[in-house]
Design a protein around this nucleic acid. Structure first.
Length: 560
RNA sequence: GUCCCGAUAGCUCAGCAGGAUAGAGCAACAGUUUCCUAAACUGUAGGUCGGAGGUUCGAAUCCUCUUCGGGACGCCA
């Protein structure tokens, strides 16, 4: 399977060790076009050392390369192009997928180490908006990819269940709220109150002071404040649970910000002991080099976001002993995490080197940030339900005899929404478009799911049974499927190294495309001696697609 | 003002440990089903890779400057 390495070995011999094997592996690339072979070695760099033209070097090298693994070696314009021996390579790959099944492409780079992943982290008493979708699906995929790569992921939902916003909410509830209406539709009603607070506060600034006072009461454990807070929190969690269930996402910890309330004094003490704290305009800060100072305590003595994140980081290290610790949080908080990591470094914690902020772009509406304060939010649950309804419609039209229509619609609908978010590089901003999100054709989740269902259908109809006979490439047209299968481990490697789930999304698209082309050009269930081999190939595609989808947090229905 | 992201086809984006003719999807147009799910496949059309310099045998990819868009920059998170 490591054909690059094999090629490098051969080159190393042919070059009498003039370049290191590692360097050679690095230089080997994939030719731009399929008719140029499967691997290519550019000779331009060697031209300087050898004082010969790249063309001559390539021609020369080509004659020296002889291995049964390559069926053709061709010097073209300064490149040595290599064509893999299709029968041999295919047999190896198919054999590997067949024997490893869903463990195909498992990596060991994580080495069993713990990786905490802080993601989703919605704010209590606010609706689960499209904005939170990004953190949720990216974090979930990263956890799955980390596991595939040999890490032990710990999924942490760092709930936004503390802060001045609760002061605002309590004020709003006491002034304009009503218990019954909140009980009926907690999130909608609380959002309404939150929005109303900001509207009224524009004309009446004293409201802000009231809100701060109520938050102070909350921090001082005032009974009424606590009671309301607990109620809001509980209702919100119920609401979030529905969404997580819909998307099939689970967490190891729901410790939110409030959990760290009693752990912050210790952090402040540690900072004092290390003489890192300074007073500035009545507030306590840690001055940093090349960064603005990090605020630890407000002038009224209450804590801040950064303080809680410091406490959380220390708690996580002490509890989980992580080697890596990720924060899947939006772009706009980059500075904050730089500050927090920097403070931890000043505190002398070596383990902070394993911490990374995994930023992502914003979900925009009309080119602008969506604002909860102004009530300009799109609710995730509504979008998911709409996607599911649309999927159900399609199923009724296209596959009316399908038994579990509702369940498959759920898988396909949520799949479309999740995939739409994951297929592009995280850091890009996304303009919210319901139309794009509910598209089931082209480069979409449903396209990949459909491809998987097609493969499953073939296996059913062809009554496929695994056998121990070696299987090789059944048709020339299948070669791009083989090369796609070979590429799966690389996709996972890149995804984990760059914390980039879109690598997997792009990969499953590529494999699906290769398979659909094959499907269109070769009749798989034809009665021929090739049928068993073809079905075996279909089976390897099905396994790999399913695993790829799983890593993104999508399910792969057998029929749709 | 300082710092961080981004700019590639009409739209959404790949490509960016430099390499051979810049690729997909959507939209448009033209096709494919007596045949394994047409949520598919085939073809046509569409690009001064924001602009200007530089490094290099070679730049969409690296460096500098610049324009435009977004974000962050102390008592929100």
């Amino acid at each position: 399977m490591e054909f690059k390495t094999d090629f490098a070995e051969v080159l190393y011999g042919a070059l009498n060790g003039q370049l290191e094997k590692k360097k050679l592996i690095q230089m080997i690339e994939k030719p731009k076009f399929e008719n140029m072979g499967d691997l290519a070695f550019p000779c331009f760099e060697l031209a300087k050392v050898l004082r010969k033209s790249p063309q001559i070097i390539a021609t020369d090298l080509a004659t020296k390369i002889k291995t049964p693994l390559f069926e053709k070696v061709e010097p073209v314009g300064g490149y040595v192009n290599v064509f893999l021996n299709k029968p041999i390579v295919s047999q190896q790959v198919i054999q590997k997928v067949l024997s490893e099944k869903e463990n195909f492409a498992d990596l060991k780079i994580g080495n069993g180490q713990v990786m905490t992943i802080d993601f989703s982290s919605p704010n209590i008493a606010k609706p689960f908006s499209m904005g939170h979708l990004r953190s949720t699906v990216i974090g979930n995929a990263l956890a799955l990819i980390a596991e595939k790569s040999g890490y032990r992921p710990i999924r942490i939902n760092h709930l936004g269940d503390w802060g001045t916003q609760f002061g605002k909410l309590i004020v709003a509830y006491k002034k304009w709220g009503n218990e019954d209406t909140v009980r009926k539709q907690p999130i909608k009603e609380l959002l309404k109150l939150y929005v109303q607070f900001h509207e009224e506060a524009e004309n009446d600034p004293t409201l802000e002071n009231e809100a701060r006072a109520w938050f102070k009461k909350l921090e001082d454990a005032d009974a009424e404040a606590i009671e309301l807070w607990e109620w809001f929190r509980e209702e919100s969690l119920k609401e979030f649970a529905k969404i997580y269930e819909l998307m099939g996402i689970e967490f190891d910890s729901y410790h939110g910000e409030a959990f760290y309330n009693d752990k912050m004094d210790r952090v402040v003490e540690m900072l004092e002991d290390k003489k890192l704290l300074e007073e500035s305009d009545g507030a306590q800060v840690v001055p940093l080099e090349n960064l603005p100072p990090c605020l630890i305590k407000k002038s009224d003595g209450t804590t801040l976001y950064a303080t809680r994140d410091l406490a959380a980081a220390i708690y996580r290290q002490e509890t989980y002993h992580f080697t890596k610790s990720l924060y899947v949080v939006g772009n706009e908080q980059t500075l904050h995490f730089k500050q927090v990591f920097s403070v931890l470094e000043k505190m002398g914690f070596e383990w902070q080197k394993g911490m990374s902020h995994v930023p992502f772009g914003m979900m925009l509406k009309d080119g602008k940030k969506m604002s909860t304060r102004k009530g300009k939010v799109v609710l995730l649950e509504e979008v998911l339900n709409e996607a599911i309804a649309l999927a159900l419609e399609d199923i009724k039209k296209k596959n009316p005899n399908l038994a579990s229509k509702e369940e498959v619609a759920r898988q396909v609908g949520t799949g479309a929404v999740i995939f739409h978010d994951l297929k592009n590089f995280r850091q890009n901003d996304i303009e919210f478009s319901l139309e794009d999100m509910l598209r089931f054709e082209g480069e979409t989740g449903p396209y990949v799911q459909y491809t998987h269902a097609r493969a499953a259908s073939l296996l059913r109809k062809g009554d496929f049974q695994e056998s121990d006979n070696p299987v090789s490439i059944p048709d020339q047209e299948a070669w791009s499927i083989i090369t796609a299968l070979i590429a799966f481990p690389d996709a996972i490697k890149r995804a984990i190294e760059e914390y980039d789930p879109s690598q997997i999304a792009k990969y499953v698209i590529e494999l699906s495309r290769a398979f659909n082309k094959y499907y269109a050009s070769v009749r798989i269930l034809d009665d021929s001696e090739l049928k068993q081999d073809r079905l075996t190939l279909v089976y390897t595609v099905k396994l790999t697609l399913k695993e790829g989808l799983r890593l993104l947090g999508l399910q792969a229905p057998e029929e749709m």
